[in-house]
Design a protein around this nucleic acid. Structure first.
Lengths: 186, 186
DNA sequence: TTCAGCCTACCTACCTGTAGGTAGGGCGTC
DNA sequence: GACGCCCTACCTACAGGTAGGTAGGCTGAA
């Protein structure tokens, strides 16, 4: 892994624990044992790093969805895998979803990053909508006239509960996902 | 309104647009035309200001719930009023929920503020849980074995959709709330 | 009434440590 | 020599905070 990739990897961790404006080039330089100016060499402006992080996030998303599709034994199982993947680091390492982290700093992001974030949102909403629609078609879930709206409920429930789990413990997360499951199945 | 109250009022706006770590004493001093040291006079450390903001948020919450209770003509109407109140500034002024804002900076908040935030979360979850339970008892909503988990779904759906509405427009917000309504009524 | 002491609310000046960034240079590899 | 990747040194502008001070108002005692 070359220096540039190390910068992105470490920055992705920081994005998820402190948000985009919560870590600096000095943080990165200290972690990797290089100078700040060297970080600037690879990413001249923080926006450049931010866009690289959006690309990283998209890759992370796309690979995740591919994995869930390959291993999910039902549509609900795919959604559960999504939720479990999101949980994986949250409860032990206090990490949030990178997309949520970017939304938290939305007002301070340059336009280009906002546009990249919009793309990420749609990738995620599209995938969950498709899984829900497939589940409805297969009789796993109750009929819904707007899978995208329903996908929103699922995504926001999941992410919100993960945010809160950092302070309230994982029980609330499980309660939330359980109620969502009952709502779409019963 | 004295200086201290002005500091809190302005800080509350900043909390909701930039997050707790997104504005500084210099920002406040510039806005109010006083020096930074004068801000420190009223709130020696930023944590003191943070705790005052938590109090402000609690007052804002409690008054909101009182208003929704007084004017709500059904349990769903109360929840809709909650959602509409949250929407009121979000779509025009890019303001987020203060509680969400604090959660976004959770890892960087001193312990005392984290504890105050936990209290705020519970106040909100408790109120929504009670409204949902009353609606279930009155036959407005379908039975649920865990009103608190259901309250989580509602709150997170609402807040998440507001976050996204800043970037995607209000349609997604309405879709989300509409699907939630169908889920608990049909 | 006057005055000392105290309080509130502000001020200037200063501190350490960044945060994002710029300019010029060195070194190793091909 | 060219280039990638690093470096030192520096810039402006903070961010949270500290120390010492001033001004005006209030209160109680002489």
């Amino acid at each position: 892994m070359n220096t540039k990739q190390q910068i992105v990897a470490y920055s992705a961790d920081m994005l998820r624990t402190r948000g985009f404006n919560g870590f600096s080039y000095l943080d990165i330089s200290r972690e990797l044992g290089i100078t700040k100016a060297s970080v600037h060499h690879h990413f001249p402006k923080k926006q450049d790093l931010g866009l690289a992080l959006c690309e990283w996030t998209e890759e992370w998303l796309v690979q995740g969805f591919k994995h869930f599709e390959e291993h999910g034994i039902s549509e609900w199982d795919k959604l559960q895998r999504y939720a479990r993947a999101a949980t994986k680091h949250c409860l032990s390492e206090q990490m949030m979803c990178p997309i949520s982290a970017l939304h938290g700093d939305l007002n301070k992001l340059p336009l280009e990053m906002q546009q990249a974030l919009q793309v990420l949102d749609n990738i995620e909403l599209d995938w969950v909508s498709r899984v829900l629609q497939a589940g409805i078609d297969a009789g796993e879930f109750k009929a819904a006239d707007d899978p995208r709206g329903l996908a929103s409920v699922f995504i926001f429930s999941c992410k919100g509960a993960l945010y809160y789990a950092r302070l309230h413990g994982k029980e609330l997360f499980h309660q939330t996902m359980q109620q969502f499951e009952k709502l779409i199945k019963e």
